[in-house]
């Protein structure tokens, strides 16, 4: 009995001091995130049930903001458009990124892989504002594409469908989030045991069917991660719709900014932020659930 107790107690005690040391160390960053993120997010949730009363808040809890947000066609349109654009951006970004990740993982010599990854991440780290503005220059009425195509003589009139609309937002964001899509897919592809692919071909599958029946299912955890990591931040993007979106390309983040900084209606802004977050989370969870058969046993 005593032996048993000691035998069980000793590792438990070690575990406890180790657990304490670990928690003490992680306490600082954890505390920071709680204080700077969890508490403010709770405040946003709280305020979304208040109303703006000139300079002060009316703190009687009410669902009026939510009612207004779902009935007002402007808010509804902005929210649906944001989800639509974010979805389209995600689709385009991941489809464009997959072959690049595949190429680096399967066809680049191991010692040159990190150079390729570095080259892909560099543009991502350079000033976001300037990059978005340059897309405006590229896509504009007198922009690089239009003046280039006109000089060559392919078109007579400048193309107008590429700036100040949703297309421009999609192109610009697909560019901005490229490394976010490539890196997770690359990591998933790197993990694939190459002998599985040989086995598949030995068993009579050709290259294409090997790709679709072995490589792609095994890469799905990376694809799912890429989709989430592109989709979630995209829906809250402010700069791109503002600079290249025109009136028909504005998104929910622009309205949140207007509510907070222009109309001085923080409760309405908070409500829109909460609704946007909820929709994003719901869609993300749904997406993960739909793909769970690929994710099982991946860790």
């Amino acid at each position: 009995m005593l032996v048993q107790l000691v035998g069980m107690g000793a590792p438990l005690a070690i575990l406890n001091t180790e657990s304490k040391k670990g928690l003490a160390l992680v306490g600082a960053p954890l505390g920071y995130v709680v204080l700077m993120l969890a508490v403010p997010l709770a405040a946003i949730l709280l305020i979304s049930f208040w109303t703006q009363d000139f300079q002060t808040f009316d703190t009687t809890p009410t669902l009026n903001n939510y009612r207004e947000a779902v009935t007002d066609p402007l808010y509804r349109e902005l929210l649906f458009r944001s989800i639509r654009i974010a979805g389209l951006v995600t689709l385009v970004t991941v489809l464009l990124a997959f072959p690049v990740a595949y190429f680096i993982s399967f066809h680049v010599a191991p010692e040159r892989k990190s150079l390729w990854l570095f080259l892909i991440t560099i543009p991502f780290w350079t000033s976001y504002l300037i990059r978005v503005f340059l897309w405006k220059v590229i896509l504009g009425f007198n922009g690089v594409i239009n003046s280039g195509l006109q000089t060559v003589g392919i078109i007579d009139e400048p193309l107008t469908f590429i700036l100040y609309n949703a297309n421009a937002v999609v192109i610009t964001l697909a560019h901005a989030f490229a490394p976010f899509a490539i890196l997770p897919i690359f990591v998933a592809l790197e993990k694939i045991d190459r002998s599985l692919l040989e086995a598949s071909q030995d068993l009579g599958e050709n290259r294409v069917s090997t790709f679709f029946r072995v490589t792609l299912p095994l890469a799905m955890p990376g694809v799912v991660a890429a989709v989430l990591i592109v989709f979630i931040p995209t829906i809250g993007d402010y700069v791109t719709p503002r600079l290249v979106g025109g009136p028909d390309g504005l998104m929910i983040a622009n309205m949140i900014q207007v509510q907070f900084l222009r109309l001085n209606n923080a409760p309405m802004g908070a409500t829109l932020a909460v609704i946007a977050m909820l929709s994003v989370s719901l869609i993300a969870l749904l997406f993960v659930a739909l793909n769970r058969r690929f994710l099982r046993g991946s860790r």
Binding site: G236, Y238, A253, I256, A270, M277
Partner: peptide, 9 residues
């Protein structure tokens, strides 16, 4: 997290 959410909260 979208940065605008971090910013407004």
């Amino acid at each position: 997290l979208p940065e605008i959410i971090v910013a407004v909260s």
